[in-house]
Design a binder for these strands. Structure first.
Length: 804
RNA sequence: GCGAGAGUGGCGGAAUUGGCAGACGCGCUGGACUUAGGAUCCAGUACUACUAAAUAGUAUGGGGGUUCGAGUCCCCCCUCUCGCACCA
């Protein structure tokens, strides 16, 4: 062990004094780096530590590479846990939040990370949520924030509605309650307005991980097909969406989703239907979507009329039809859709084949492939792929259908019936309807926590606060009510990368000049769990502000890096609630920041999940202690210059090669192998006897430069022993000597029939004959070449393979 | 079911274009130092065969293929992780 505590204190103080992490006013070669910010539940565990370590390492390296860097930090401070603390422990949510921030900030500061704290933002500060509200008003003005009555996800645990992105496998993302359906009028953001941009621009995100891009594509879920209008015998009309209009002649029934309006109307007159819908909607999505669940449904005893054949067919309500996809109504084609097939079997409905497969297919399943049209009137004999286009035109010309595109992505439900969030800045006036709060009246402040009753009543606590609710209509001046709901916290985090640009601006959300200086974010580091939520919202807001002319960029983030999760010894994801999270402060108190960082970086590649094992951290302490013991005492002051003799020594070559490897490895986020290379070099240095000669001094100085991004505190301490006054991070990253790494000799690998039989040192550039000559001299080779060799393969400067 | 990724010693993991499999670290074994060692230093450590060395054989989830040569490329299968999931 080395005196890490004193060293850390000393250098953290020094860095603050010299303003090392302050963002340059006028960046020449800018680099904007962000890590996903933490939610303020108070603990900074090892997963956060890993995340921030990647960012810190990058800052230090880019800094030494000469970049002007913006590296901010902030807090995702609104959200339910604060309110839960109020309900369960009778704590003040504001105090709870700010105390947690204080504690977490203290921890992070102890870790000596390279943040510019002058740009710190907190979403629950009125200075921040004023602009969250401003953003909502801009969305409203553009028609992208609207109210709609719809079936929405309701979490009975959190007593609030949820966005689709917050429902994971039918369960609430936060509390794991089964999510229910409720028909409510809610605020939505029209993300679907930008759906094509969100989808197409994924192609421009060259430096995003492929899996994240694929997840976003799937989430958006674009499907091309046709919308077809059917008429009921009572004259009512409805539309279905299908990707297979070619199967139109195979329709033998219609299924309505329990959520559909038509079903609701029918239910008023039909008790059986009413009961079925009631039961279906009571079921959580998770129960309703169990695979292999037997199809259920109820006959409405109404008939629909086929738009082309005028045939009548029964209309059912069935819960396998989702209200949220397409029109919420499907045409049943049992011969060519497996679900429809199962439904038809159960209700003994006719199955009419309209596509003939090219090969024989399995019995008792629907044929979903393409083939030749049959039973389709004048179109028999056409290929079904072509028929899709043809029939769409036919439907269009008859005025009963059209080509259409459907998306899985839905509008973003942003209202929450909770207190601890940004109040939605809207006023409801009986005369004027919905009126946005005038921008000069922002922020709409949350009332003091003391005046609020937090006991959940399935409506916003603000609804019961008359001082908050009662206001005047900005338009007519009459009595009006505020909107009692608050915004989803993902609204706050959808634009924080923009507030960092100009965190203290009182007049504007941010200055356009600052945005042009720094955007896009060059590197954004965080977990893959935000692939379809936060990252889509962030892209959406960026596109929205681009369209309004506030931003010149269309995409917020150039390079996205997904770090892997940290799990415990048993492979279980660490979390506060499971009580298996390793506390960063404890770890750092035990082994020091630098050793903790080296340990977590050495654990494995940054993008893979790691299982935390206590014993694996020992190596890092040994590594740094060895460095400290060996370098600290032997460090010499003054300039060092190498002569030719020094440059011919093996150690010199190793130093230059290591420089190359560490540089390349950092570039490609291969931190574990970079550390391994440094460990190898240290082993070589330990073996080097002349601890006082020029080459040794040169080597340990170079070593410190290479180590600096990984272990900044110890590096600064030893760097100062060389007589330097400033920080090592103001130095340039070393450039390796290209001449030095050229080798004159190489190890010739000698194979017989592809098997390694001998090795020999040879001069580089020798030809095949020479190599063969060397190979044949080897004793072990003679043993294996009994007769003549047939063929010789020579890979220059690498290996020779003799085929016998 | 669909999509993506992965499978290498006792463990975490290395391995440019196909070219020395197992870097580096942990652990373990033996030794040194020591009042002591869960500190430090030195040596060894994929498996099998031999006491050992030298050497040989076998090894990158399983099976096949391409190639002088495959952890790496192709085909089939198994297992695990992640995402989506009755999406019409």
């Amino acid at each position: 062990m080395y005196p890490f505590r004193d060293i850390e204190k000393k250098w953290q103080k020094r860095w603050e004094e010299i303003g090392l992490y302050r963002t340059p006013e006028k960046p020449e070669d800018k680099y904007y780096i962000m890590e996903m910010w933490p939610y303020t539940s108070g603990d900074i565990h090892i997963g956060h530590f890993r995340n921030y370590s990647f960012g810190d390492l990058r800052w230090r390296w880019e800094k030494m590479m000469g970049k002007d860097i913006l590296h901010p930090f902030g807090w995702d401070a609104f959200g339910l846990p604060a309110e839960e603390a109020a309900i369960k422990k009778n704590l003040d949510p504001r105090e709870w939040t700010y105390n947690n921030i204080k504690a977490a900030r203290r921890t992070i500061k102890k870790l000596g990370f390279s943040y510019d704290w002058e740009r710190e933002v907190i979403t629950s500060d009125p200075d921040y949520y004023k602009w969250t509200q401003w953003l909502l008003i801009q969305l409203y003005k553009e028609g992208l924030l609207y109210r709609k009555e719809a079936y929405v996800n309701w979490c009975p645990g959190c007593k609030t509605v949820l966005a689709n992105e917050q429902v994971e496998g039918g369960l609430c993302w936060r509390c794991d309650s089964k999510v229910e359906k409720r028909k409510l009028e809610q605020w939505f953001v029209r993300t679907t307005d930008y759906v094509e941009g969100l989808l197409n621009d994924i192609e421009t995100l060259d430096e995003w991980p492929e899996n994240i891009k694929e997840m976003q594509r799937n989430w958006i879920g674009k499907n091309e097909g046709a919308t077809i209008r059917f008429t009921m015998e009572n004259g009512e009309e409805f539309e279905v969406f299908t990707t297979r209009p070619d199967t139109i002649y195979g329709v033998t029934f219609i299924c309505l989703s329990p959520e559909s309006e038509i079903a609701e109307v029918i239910a008023k007159k039909n008790k059986e239907v009413k009961q079925y819908i009631h039961d279906a909607l009571l079921m959580s999505n998770i129960e309703r979507t169990i695979v292999d669940r037997e199809k259920t449904g109820v006959n409405t005893h109404y008939n629909a009329i086929h738009p082309l054949t005028n045939e009548e067919m029964p209309v059912f309500v069935a819960d396998f039809v989702l209200g949220s996809y397409g029109t919420g109504i499907v045409m049943g084609v049992p011969a060519h859709d497996q679900r429809d097939f199962e439904f038809a079997k159960k209700f003994k409905l006719p199955i009419r084949q309209v596509i003939k497969p090219e090969k024989e297919t399995e019995e008792n399943t629907a044929f979903t492939g393409h083939g030749i049209m049959i039973n389709s009137g004048e179109f028999d004999g056409m290929r079904s792929e072509e028929f899709i286009k043809k029939i769409t035109q036919v439907l269009e010309s008859k005025g009963v259908g059209c080509k259409s595109i459907n998306y899985r992505l839905k509008d973003w439900l942003i209202a929450r019936q909770r207190y601890w969030g940004a109040p939605i800045p809207m006023i409801h006036c009986e005369k004027c309807g919905i009126v946005p709060v005038p921008e000069e009246d922002l922020p709409v402040l949350l009332p003091p926590t003391k005046e609020v009753d937090f006991i959940p009543k399935s409506r916003s606590p603000l609804a019961d606060h008359s001082n908050f609710m009662n206001t005047k209509c900005p338009k007519c001046g009459g009595a009006a009510l505020r909107d009692p709901d608050t915004a989803d916290t993902f609204v706050d985090s959808a634009w924080y990368h923009l507030r960092y640009l100009d965190a203290k601006n009182k007049a504007k959300i941010f200055d356009r000049g600052e945005a042009d200086k720094w955007l896009p974010v060059d590197l954004y580091i965080g977990g893959a769990e935000h692939a379809t939520g936060h990252l889509i919202y962030m892209r959406f807001i960026t596109k929205f502000l681009h369209k309004l002319g506030y931003l010149s960029v269309k995409e917020p983030v150039l390079r996205l890096f997904n770090q892997g999760m940290v799990r415990d010894e048993n492979g279980v994801v660490m979390s506060k609630s499971k009580g298996n999270a390793v506390d960063t402060e404890e770890l750092v108190a035990k082994i020091g920041v630098d050793a903790a960082k080296i340990a977590i970086l050495f654990f494995g590649p940054p993008d893979s999940d790691i299982d935390w094992r206590e014993e694996n951290i020992k190596g890092s302490t040994r590594f740094l202690t060895k460095i400290y013991d060996l370098f600290y005492e032997n460090a010499r002051k003054g300039a060092i210059s190498l002569d030719i003799n020094d440059k011919q020594k093996t150690l010199f070559k190793v130093v230059e090669k290591t420089t190359k490897k560490v540089t390349n490895d950092i570039e490609k986020f291969s931190y574990n192998t970079a550390i391994a290379a440094l460990m190898e070099l240290l082993n070589k240095i330990t073996d080097y006897v002349d601890k006082n000669d020029n080459l040794f001094q040169y080597t340990i100085r170079r070593f410190m430069s290479l180590l600096a991004p990984f272990a900044p505190h110890i590096t600064e301490e030893i760097y100062s022993r060389f007589g330097n006054k400033e920080s090592i991070f103001l130095e340039d990253w070393p450039i390796y000597d290209k001449e030095a790494i050229i080798e004159e000799q190489f190890t010739l690998i000698i194979q017989i029939n592809g098997k390694l039989r001998a090795r020999a040192v040879a001069d580089k550039g020798i030809d095949k004959e020479k190599a063969l000559e060397i190979a044949l001299k080897q004793e072990n080779v003679q043993k294996f070449i009994k007769g003549n060799h047939k063929k010789v393969i020579y890979v220059p400067d690498k290996l020779i393979n003799i085929v016998v």
